[in-house]
Computed example of a mutant assay.
Amino acid sequence: MCHCNVINTDGEREVTPIPSNQDTEFESSACLEEYDAIGKVPHQMKLHKINDSVKFVFPFIIEGMEFSDSLCDTGANLNVMSKAIANELGMCDIKPPHGSVKFGDNSSMIPYGFITDLMVQVGGCLIPVYFYILEMENDSPRALIFGSSFLATVGAVVDYPNRRVCFSKVKRRIFYPAVCSGGSSYCITIYKE
Rank of each mutant, 00 (worst) to 15 (best):
T9W: 12
D10V: 06
D10I: 04
E12H: 08
E12S: 12
E12K: 10
E14H: 09
E14V: 13
T16N: 08
I18W: 01
I18R: 01
S20R: 05
N21Y: 06
N21E: 13
Q22W: 11
D23T: 13
T24C: 14
E25H: 08
F26C: 15
F26N: 11
E27T: 08
E27I: 05
E27G: 06
E27W: 06
S28E: 13
S28Y: 14
S29Q: 09
A30Q: 12
L32V: 07
E33P: 03
Y35A: 02
D36S: 15
D36N: 14
D36Q: 15
A37I: 13
I38R: 03
I38G: 04
G39Y: 02
V41N: 06
V41F: 08
V41Y: 07
P42A: 05
P42V: 03
P42G: 03
H43P: 02
H43S: 14
H43V: 12
M45P: 01
K46M: 12
K46Y: 12
L47K: 10
H48E: 15
H48F: 12
S53K: 07
V54L: 13
V54Y: 06
K55E: 11
F56L: 09
V57D: 03
V57F: 05
F58G: 10
F58D: 05
P59H: 06
P59S: 05
P59A: 15
P59N: 06
F60L: 14
I61V: 13
I61Y: 00
I61H: 00
I62V: 14
I62E: 02
G64H: 02
M65Y: 08
F67Q: 04
F67C: 08
F67T: 07
F67R: 03
D69I: 04
S70E: 10
S70N: 08
L71Q: 03
C72V: 14
D73N: 10
T74F: 06
L78N: 02
L78P: 03
V80G: 04
K83M: 08
K83N: 15
A84T: 12
A84H: 11
A84R: 10
I85L: 07
N87H: 10
N87G: 09
E88S: 15
L89W: 01
L89A: 07
G90H: 01
G90S: 03
C92Y: 07
C92N: 15
D93L: 06
P96F: 05
P97Y: 00
P97K: 00
G99F: 00
S100H: 09
K102G: 12
K102H: 07
G104Y: 03
D105K: 00
D105A: 02
N106Y: 11
S107W: 00
M109T: 11
I110A: 07
P111Y: 00
P111I: 00
Y112R: 04
Y112N: 06
G113R: 00
F114Y: 04
I115G: 01
I115F: 01
